[in-house]
Structures are given as C-alpha cells and as structure tokens.
Amino acid sequence: MTDKMFENNQVSMIGEVVSEFQFSHEVLGEGFYMVEVSVNRLSNYADYIPLMVSERLVDTQQDYTGQLIHINGQFRSYNRHEEKKNRLVLSVFVREWEFVDELEENEKTNQIFLDGYVCKDPVYRKTPLGREIADLLIAVNRSYGKSDYIPCICWGRNARFASGFEVGSHIQVLGRIQSREYVKRINDDETEHRIAYEVSVSKVDFLEDM
C-alpha cells in the first residue's frame, strides 16, 4: 500500500540550489529543512521551488548554493493557520537527492505525475485574448490516511475538458510545478507580495473507477 501511495504523486526535478537550509521541524528525532531550487523553463523564465529535505538524506549544515541537483519526491501540502484562516502551503518532499555536473541536452528538468480526485468545482475562464484556462484542486491520497491538496491549472483544450469534471472525479495529470508571484491585499492600506505554487498541466485523463 505504501508503494501505491508513492506512485500516485511523483516529482522529478533538476535545478540549482539558490538558498541555504532553514530548519523546518523535527519528527521522532529526525530534522527536516527547507531549501529552494531554481528550475529553468524553455522560455528562460525560472521557477523557484521549495524543497523539504531530511537531515538524514543530505548534510543540511552545508551550503550548496550554486550547485546543480537532481531530486525525486512528492508534491505535498499542509494547512498553516494565519490571519484567522488556513493557508495552503506547498513544497516538494525529497526522497532522493543527487548532485549533477551539468544538464544533458533535451533533458526534462521539471516533471510531475498525480493520480487523485477533484475536490472543488473547476473554475473555467477566458483571458482577454481568448485563452482558455481551468483551475483545479486535486486531493491525492498519502499514507496514514492523509491527503495532499494540489492546485492545478489547465490550458486550451485541456481546460475545456477539465471544466466538465465533477467533485469526486478520479483523474490523472502530467505537468510541471511552477511558481507565480501575486499581490495579497491585507487591508485597505496594506498589500503583500507572495508566491503561489501550482501544477501547469500538459495532459489530463479522466478515470472510470470500477
């Protein structure tokens, strides 16, 4: 069952470490740390993705800024309580970490596969230029009865297809993790710059559960 849980949420990513490790929390004597990687898109824009790493996987006391790494893991979420409400916090939980010397030509640097269930009605819209977009929130089962809630964004034909999904629909998606800056209004006089993380979907399939 545990292997099945790992199969439904798979991330593979190659990027440059752009921060030092910051302590996050401890579980049964095992420390977990946050570190950020920069992953280039084909457009030369870079996504900045937070990783959660165990101190037993890599020496978290070292500074690896500027080094290229290849990681495998899962895209996970948890709710953090702030401003009298919960905020969804996302990061990649690293299961494998490897240093690499250079990128091979045409090597995929940012891939994710999710097998989960639609947990909110899709939000379908068109941009002023007519581009179709659909926002999804997918619940992906994890071990010990937990679930990760992953925001996804679909484009074009995929957006039109996804707009017909119902809550509870079983789907699979392939895509990449991307970061996006936005401005959060705190009150009438105050705003705050934040970064959102989501899956940009390249392929989506609807599954008929038996």
Rank of each mutant, 00 (worst) to 15 (best):
S163F: 00
M210L: 12
C154V: 08
G116N: 05
F23W: 14
E190F: 00
S169I: 00
C154T: 13
R76Q: 11
A139F: 01
D101Q: 15
G31S: 13
Q74H: 11
Y197W: 04
S143I: 08
G168H: 05
D63G: 04
R87F: 02
N8I: 15
I14W: 00
R125I: 01
L88N: 15
E166G: 06
A162K: 01
L42A: 14
V39M: 05
G66L: 03
Q62L: 14
Q74Y: 07
G175K: 10
V199K: 07
I171T: 01
G31M: 05
D3R: 07
E107L: 12
M13K: 02
L28P: 00
S202W: 01
E96S: 13
T60F: 11
T2P: 00
V89P: 03
S19W: 04
L28Q: 14
H170E: 10
Y124P: 06
L174A: 10
N79A: 10
R131H: 15
S147K: 08
D205R: 03
L136S: 03
N8R: 13
Y144D: 14
D148E: 03
A162D: 01
V92C: 05
E181S: 13
E190D: 11
S143V: 12
L88H: 04
Y149V: 09
D3Y: 12
V11A: 06
S24C: 08
S200M: 10
S77W: 00
V201S: 02
F21I: 00
R194N: 07
L42V: 14
N110K: 09
S143A: 14
S19Q: 10
Q111W: 02
N86S: 11
V100C: 05
N141A: 13
Y124C: 10
L129E: 13
V89N: 13
E192D: 12
Q172A: 15
P128T: 03
T60C: 15
S200H: 12
F21W: 12
I71D: 09
N158E: 03
Q10A: 05
L174W: 08
E7L: 08
F165I: 04
K146T: 09
Y149Q: 06
N86E: 11
I112P: 08
F6T: 09
L114P: 02
T65V: 13
G31T: 11
Q178K: 15
M13L: 15
V173K: 05
N86F: 05
R131A: 11
S143M: 11
P151I: 01
F23R: 11
I195C: 04
I133A: 09
E82H: 04
K126C: 07
S54V: 01
S43F: 04
L51G: 05
L88Y: 02
N44Q: 14
A139L: 03
S77N: 10
R160H: 04
N72Q: 15
I69S: 09
C152G: 02
I69T: 01
E30Q: 14
V167T: 10
I71L: 14
